[in-house]
Design a protein around this nucleic acid. Sequence first.
DNA 1: CAAGACTCCTGACGGC
DNA 2: TGCCGTCAGGAGTCTT
Length: 296
Amino acid sequence: MPELPEVETIVRQLRPQLVGRTVTAVRLGWSGVVQRPSPARFRSELVGRRIVGVRRRAKYFVFELDDGRALVGHLRMTGRLAVEPALPPSDTSALRPEWVRASFLLDDGRRLVFADVRKFGRLALVRSLDEVLPAIGPEPLSDAMDGPWMAAALAARRRLLKPLLLDQSFVAGLGNIYVDEALHLSGLHPLRASHRVSRAGAETLAQSIKSVLTRAIAAEGSSFDDFYRTPEGRPGRYQDGFLVYGRDGQPCRRCGATIVRLVVGQRGTHVCPRCQPRPRGATRPRTPRATPATRR
DNA sequence: CAAGACTCCTGACGGC
DNA sequence: TGCCGTCAGGAGTCTT
């Protein structure tokens, strides 16, 4: 699912294609994709706007416009963005025409396409990001997110590590995949209470998060089903390096123990029981089912 | 404040 | 073979 590395990859690839382009027409395949303002205003007010910047905040993509406003969006789980010829070859997996929720004709004759099978993704035209972005924590790749910050932030809460790291108001951009990967790299169990992590553990966690995200961006993100593709149509490559995610039943790459799948905070969670010892007193999580074959 | 349930939505898979 | 229940998951909302 698109997390920080996937959105960063998308933004980097779209930037040279979109900056300087003017939107000449907007088509909505499903008006529910527009969060605000009204679909009618969204369409009419975007026409004629030139895109002057393309960036990312957390898992949101932000297209800055020449009137100071921005087209902001979130891909949620199955959203995709691509720039293609105005008349595309009409059937390529997640970009199937019936899944196109919005498309934007550009002044160079191409079109920016937003497709999303499950209709969870959203677009908004805003004057300020505050209009649609909730309170969001620091960017994990920024210098502000370091060991001391992590130690203080973990101590200030009393929550299980996994749901805390998934909480966008704590740190921005992490999702289920990279939380599992970062926790494994840190040797921390997802059921550990945040305030019980040592100072050294917090330092390791901060560095592990940066390391995992940096490597994932270098690999253009992770793909394990038909959904995530870069705007250029390629799958990511980071799934080949997964340490634990989706690897339940397989040997840990570090110690050889069998990777286990748990459910923590209603999320599939993958751990190496040897590298990530279960904290004493942690409530026993529900027994997991086998990982569905959809992933892999 | 924390945490769990529930919702949205659809495709794919397991079970029978 | 084919129908049907279940599941995945980001994030908001509501309840405990």
